[in-house]
Every structure is written in structure tokens, then in C-alpha cells.
Nucleic acid binder design. Structure first.
Length: 307
RNA sequence: GGGCAGGUAGCUCAGUUGGUAGAGCAACGGACUGAAAAUUCGUGUGUCGGCGGUUCAACUCCGCCCCUGCCCA
């Protein structure tokens, strides 16, 4: 008994993957990856997946669950991840959830609203209208049926406008009346949330080093072979950082150096967005990691917090 | 040593007839509920190389010095 639910947060390249692995071994837990890109098979180097060796030692979930040609979603994530967590708990083991996809983490903590998933036909239709009429026109339409949502969504944010209209069309209810989960207590209290944090320049330096290493360990070849596959990469998979830029390079629109610089820049931006999300997460115990601090030392500090 | 061209934001550079400065990129802050590594909103962060001079007022004009690049010795 006494199995734990631990969530580890941190920006990309913060070392949370290692920590999760060491922690899982220490407390005999299984790991649930909370990452929108590690779900794709054969996208290994660029998503910094745990090694096969690590995966032999600790059981991982939510990694390699779909083909690169498939689309994935927060809803699908929540469904599969919840099932995985149930399974782990059924074995009487602890759960360590690690990842950098904040929306997915939030979905685990609070759930998502009970509503329709994306509907391809409706969405295609609405997107066509965005093309011809511009997002502002649809935003005006949204403000008629759901002023609260329109107020919150920028008139240029085509994706959210489309989603809101889609939900209304499918359910006849304004999306703002359905999205209430994040306001309540959710399942937060079941989790111990640990955040890893370093000084900004250190985080940036780690990102640069990681990108360099990805290129050295075969990112270009990985992208080439993905492009050579029969089924084309899904829109989501192909905009993954590291892949989008390398596709430009492989197709001759960017030099290798330019692509690498772009990847570094976009990864830094990703980290920035992650910080913004995580800052507002509830009940996070932040661990300020020293520049040269060892995994063991961090692990020890985390163990103290977990008790 | 002499000549020429430059020294303005983290970087690349604009800056009209003197009225204490902008643009791109980078950076920073925010939003975010089934595409989220996506999408989107916002913000100049500056001893204008240094020291003097002219002027009500100097990034703009003058002098000296320092630094960088090119050319001539």
C-alpha cells in the first residue's frame, strides 16, 4: 500500500527525465510521460526519449503510443494516461508523471471538460472560413453566441476561435459554460508536485548543449528516414521542434547551421512558455538546482520532500 | 607613422536643417480546457566610444584621445 503519485515539472532539458528515472528506481515506481511529442514512434532523438536501457529498467507509459502519421490530442492523452495510471496503481506501485507539456499535466490534475473531441468535418469547414473571411469575422460570430469565450480569446487566435465554434455547433452550448474543470480542486490533492528550476542562463546553456548533442547523435538521419516513410508525418508531428527545422534543412531550404540555430532558438521559446505555465501551477514544491549539482544530490532533496 | 571609413539596444543597423533616439532579429512578460514543441497578445531593455568646447539645447557641429576595419608607408 502507500503508493505515491508524484508529478515532476520542469522546462525542456532541465534534467527532469533523469530525476524521474532515478526516483522511479528508488521508490519502485512506473513512469508516465506527459509529453505531446514522445508519444510518436520513431521520433526518438529529437524528442529526447529515455534510452532503451532506461526503459528496460523502469516501466514507462505514454511513449511510442502512436504513429508519426497520426494526430494526437489532449483528450486522447488523458484517456490513455488515466488508464495507465489505474493499471500501475492496480499493481500497487507508485506513479511518477514527468513531462513538459503543461496542458497535458493540467489535464491529469483537473480533467478536461466533458465535450466533443475535434470533429474533422466541422473543423475543416471553419478553417476554410478563416482562410476566406479572416479570424476576426469568426471571432465576431463567437461573441454573439459566447461573449465570455470571445472576451478571453484573441481575435487572431484562429485555433481557439475554431474550437469554440466547433463545440457550440456540436453541442449547442457555449464552450465557456463547459470549461470549468480548471477552476475547481480537481485531483490536485492526490499528487505531490515537484518542480525543477535553474538559473536562466544555465537553462539556456543546457538547451544549446542538448541540441548540439541531438545533431551529433543522428537527428538529421532520423528526420530523413521519417520523411522516407510511406505515410506522411501528421501536421502535429512535423511541427515538433527539431523536426520542423531539420525538414527545412533536408529539403534544402536551410543550411545545417541555420537549422541548428533555429532549433536552439525555438527550444528556448518552448522553455519560456513552459515557465509561464508552471509558475501558475498549484502547490508546486520548487527545487532550485545548482549549476553543477549532481542527479544524486537532487534526488536526495526530492526524497526529503516526498517523505 | 600618414590617409580613409566606422564606433548608437544583446546582434545587424536607421537617425532628416542641432530639440536627450528607433527598426528587424534576439530577449522579456502574459493568455491558454481534444492541433499545445501548437496558437496568440503585449513590452525598448540605451552613460548614442571617452573627455572637453560651441549652443538655451549636441547622437547630430568643433578639438583631442581611445578602439575596429581597409589603404599607403
Amino acid at each position: 500500500m502507500n503508493h505515491k503519485m508524484i508529478m515532476i515539472l520542469g522546462v525542456t532539458a532541465s534534467g527532469k527525465g533523469w530525476l524521474a528515472f532515478e526516483l522511479a528506481r528508488q521508490i519502485d515506481a512506473e513512469i508516465v510521460s506527459v509529453d505531446s511529442m514522445k508519444v510518436y514512434r520513431r521520433m526518438d532523438v529529437g524528442t529526447a526519449k529515455p534510452s532503451l536501457e532506461a526503459r528496460r529498467q523502469v516501466r514507462y507509459h505514454m511513449i511510442d503510443v502512436v504513429e508519426p502519421s497520426e494526430s494526437f490530442s489532449a483528450g486522447l492523452f488523458l484517456e490513455k494516461a488515466s488508464a495507465a495510471i489505474e493499471e500501475v496503481r492496480g499493481r500497487g506501485k507508485s506513479v511518477v508523471a514527468v513531462g513538459g507539456t503543461a496542458l497535458y499535466s493540467k489535464a491529469l490534475l483537473y480533467g478536461l471538460f466533458e465535450g466533443p473531441g475535434s470533429d474533422e468535418r466541422t473543423r475543416r469547414e471553419l478553417l476554410a472560413r478563416v482562410e476566406s473571411e479572416g479570424p476576426a469575422a469568426l471571432h465576431r460570430e463567437l461573441s454573439e453566441i459566447d461573449p465570455a469565450a470571445a472576451d478571453r480569446i484573441s481575435h487572431n487566435d484562429a485555433k481557439r476561435i475554431v474550437r469554440a465554434l466547433e463545440v457550440y455547433r456540436l453541442t449547442g452550448r457555449p464552450i465557456s459554460s463547459l470549461q470549468r474543470q480548471f477552476d475547481g480542486p480537481g485531483a490536485v490533492e492526490n499528487w505531490t508536485i515537484i518542480g525543477l528550476r535553474r538559473e536562466r542562463p544555465v537553462e539556456s546553456a543546457r538547451i544549446n548543449a542538448r541540441v548540439k548533442k541531438m545533431v551529433q547523435t543522428g537527428l538529421v538521419d532520423e528526420v530523413r528516414s521519417l520523411l522516407a516513410e510511406e505515410a506522411p508525418l501528421s501536421p502535429q508531428a512535423r511541427c515538433a521542434i527539431g523536426y520542423a527545422e531539420m525538414i527545412e534543412h533536408v529539403q534544402g531550404r536551410l543550411s545545417l547551421d541555420e537549422a541548428v540555430e533555429q532549433i536552439k532558438k525555438n527550444t528556448r521559446r518552448l522553455a519560456k512558455g513552459q515557465r509561464t505555465w508552471f509558475r501558475r501551477f498549484p502547490d508546486v514544491t520548487w527545487i532550485d538546482v545548482g549549476a553543477e549539482e549532481s542527479v544524486e544530490s537532487v534526488l536526495e532533496r526530492v526524497m526529503q520532500r516526498i517523505g
